[in-house]
Amino acid sequence: MSVLKPLKAWKHLARKPHTIRYPAQEHLDMEGTRLPTDRLRGFHSNDLEKCIGCRMCGQICMNDAITYEEIPELEGKKGKNIRPVVDYGRCCFCGLCTDICPTNSLHLTPNFKLVSTDKHDYKFMPTQLITKNEDYEVELDKVIFDAKEYKEKF
């Protein structure tokens, strides 16, 4: 009886729901990997020590999202003392800026959650507190999103 076939849906009553109770529960995929994975293109992180202020990222950015700001504390180091400021009201997370970056200091982190009531919160200088920088992998809890929190390495 094809009329009664939809009643197969009642089997879900006896099952555990498929839902992820999001704020309380982590999103895992079938193999148990945490989602989103580390390859997700979220907000940038920039190693201010490694960055040389070459303006390459701003030139390649097709959305005009990257502007530069001066950090006087960086005077006297290699390169210029300007560092990129990303406007996330423009950025489309294409990753061209990280590909072109000659020192590999600019990365896209899997951090994507930013909810705010003020639109000016979306323009900031991506920074990173680096303890060990030989690894490409970015340690998430070491990323900070405010230039004011920048501390010198030594």
Binding site: P36, L40, G42, F43, C92, F112, K113, L114, V115, S116
Partner: peptide, 19 residues
């Protein structure tokens, strides 16, 4: 409320609702 991202993942959307 603004949600960042292009586009935000569903978790981001949920965050916006909770906020």
């Amino acid at each position: 409320v603004y949600v960042g991202g292009c586009m935000p993942r569903p978790e981001g959307v949920m965050n916006a609702f909770l906020e």
